[in-house]
């Protein structure tokens, strides 16, 4: 098991920003998703966000929506997703979950946190949970040293960023653009400004996600953020692959390129 601070420390020691990869559990089926996530870890990814597929993913663009539909059609449940975590959490990468709130709510925050901790997960990203609604959840996570990661957006006011940062642990997830997940031609200019504004209100690491898909974009973001989050680009590789073996190879190849890209050979530490 690797914790979130350990994963950031490992990346820093390696002269890199942390590379954080996302794949949904159960996509394209539970057994394959374990192989895909292991391939990410083996390629040197620092953290993996294991998504729980959800029927109403309103923060996700068409690529991740399609993956969620495939995973749900394969019968994937929260139990299966926790099983996936248990099978990949013994490696050098920190394993977090990314889930819409109702799936946690249905288990109850305490039960969910206990089961995730038992599976070796070290944190949770909740894209539709605001700090105002998070009271019992924060307590349930803190009791088990699970990182509770919240999102900040380019539209967040300074006061709001302070609220988000105060509620977060592990790191703050800075959404690079206003919009849903998915690859984009360029990382928005708002991302760097948002990271700078977050630096004013928190000492937590800041990772940038949404719309980061290529090694070039990852390298750019690694120039100013502590972590680089890539999701849809991995999902696209899996969707495009003709078979599971090819999917593992494609994901592994992209992960390797991205890990190389987030290196900072000529840079001082960002902070």
């Amino acid at each position: 098991m690797t914790t979130v601070p350990e994963a950031f420390a490992r990346a820093r020691a390696g002269g890199r920003a942390a590379l954080i990869a996302y794949l949904p559990a159960g996509f394209p089926d539970p057994a394959s998703s374990v192989l895909l996530i292991r391939a990410l870890v083996d390629a040197g990814v620092d953290m993996v966000e294991v998504g729980i597929p959800y029927s109403d993913p309103l923060m996700d663009g068409p690529v991740i929506c399609q993956a969620a539909e495939i995973a749900l059609a394969a019968g994937t449940t929260t139990d299966d997703a926790l099983q996936v975590v248990a099978q990949v959490s013994d490696g050098p990468a920190a394993i977090l979950m990314m889930t819409y709130w109702n799936l946690i709510d249905r288990f109850g925050p305490d039960t969910f946190a206990a089961r995730l901790a038992a599976a070796g997960g070290v944190g949770v990203i909740t894209p539709d949970l605001t700090p105002e609604e998070a009271g019992p959840w924060l307590a349930a996570c803190d009791e088990r040293d699970l990182a509770h990661v919240f999102l900040a957006a380019p539209s967040s006011t300074p006061d709001r960023l302070a609220v988000v940062a105060r509620a977060a642990s592990g790191f703050v997830y800075a959404a690079s653009v206003m919009g849903v997940t998915g690859t984009r031609e360029s990382v928005g200019g708002a991302a760097q400004g948002l990271v700078a504004r977050l630096r004013d209100v928190t000492d937590l690491p800041v990772a940038v996600g949404i719309g980061v898909s290529t090694p070039e974009q990852a390298a750019e973001v690694a120039g100013y953020a502590d972590g680089v989050i890539v999701g849809s680009a991995f999902v696209r590789r899996v969707l495009a692959a003709p078979n599971p073996t090819a999917a593992v190879a494609a994901v592994s190849e992209l992960a390797g390129e991205l890990v190389a890209a987030v290196g900072r050979p000529n840079m001082q530490e960002v902070r």
Binding site: P127, L129, A153, S155, S156, M178
Partner: peptide, 12 residues
Amino acid sequence: GGRFVPEALTFA
């Protein structure tokens, strides 16, 4: 009730 939304919508 309450508000369970992406942070990007808080401002709006």
